[in-house]
Amino acid sequence: MLLRAVLLLSLTLSVAACGDNRLNPFNWFGNDREQRVRVDPDAAAGTPSDPRSLVSEITQLSVEQTTSGAILRATGVTPVQGYFDAELVLAEINNGAIVFEFRAAPPVGQPTPGLQTIVAGVDLTNGELAGIRSITVIGANNRRSVSRR
């Protein structure tokens, strides 16, 4: 019995040590992939109901599993400092894919020159993730995606 427990523990730790292994139970969603895009400037600028603009570029995307679902976290870059009220806004759910737009409000008054890194996240429940195979976050100049293995 003790030998069986030691073998099971060894096997679990061996699989967990393999970072990109499909057998790894801790590897829920894979590494993010970038795709360069150019979004229509009118769409990037926002709408009357949500005047926030798309973040210039998404630099990192991660999904962290929780007991009730997952936390989707995106990091982006803005062209000047002072952006605020960052949020991942649901854009669409279609055929096992969920798409978010990374939006933030531009600075009020005179912006400070220099790039700004901004982070936003959203809590997704197990019910919301049921049947979802990929998650994409869109910025003005690129998009990043993660997929289930």
Rank of each mutant, 00 (worst) to 15 (best):
G109Q: 03
I138K: 13
N141D: 15
N24W: 05
E128S: 05
A91R: 15
T67G: 03
E64P: 00
T125P: 01
I118R: 02
A86M: 01
A17H: 00
V108L: 05
G82W: 10
F84H: 14
S10I: 01
G30V: 07
R133N: 12
Q116C: 04
L72P: 00
T59Y: 02
G30R: 12
T75F: 08
A91Q: 15
V37L: 15
F100H: 05
N94K: 13
G82S: 08
I93N: 12
F102Y: 13
V15S: 00
D85Q: 06
V119N: 13
P113Q: 06
V15M: 06
L90N: 07
A44L: 15
P106R: 04
V15L: 10
R36K: 15
P106Y: 00
E57K: 12
L23D: 11
A45H: 12
P48C: 02
Q81A: 10
R144Y: 03
L129T: 05
V39G: 08
L7E: 14
S68Y: 09
G19N: 10
Q35P: 06
V55T: 00
N31K: 11
T12S: 14
L61N: 00
A44Q: 14
N126T: 08
Q81V: 08
T75V: 11
P111R: 08
S56F: 02
S62G: 10
S62K: 05
Q110W: 00
L90C: 07
T12G: 10
T125W: 10
G127H: 11
D50G: 02
V63N: 00
R38C: 03
S147G: 04
N95C: 00
I93P: 02
L3P: 01
S49D: 03
N126L: 13
F26A: 10
L90R: 12
D32H: 11
P107S: 05
P111D: 09
G82Q: 11
V108F: 04
T136R: 08
F29D: 03
A97E: 04
V119R: 12
R22K: 14
I58V: 14
V6F: 01
R143I: 02
T117A: 14
A105S: 12
P111A: 06
N94R: 14
S62E: 11
I58Q: 04
R52L: 05
A130T: 07
G109K: 05
T59G: 02
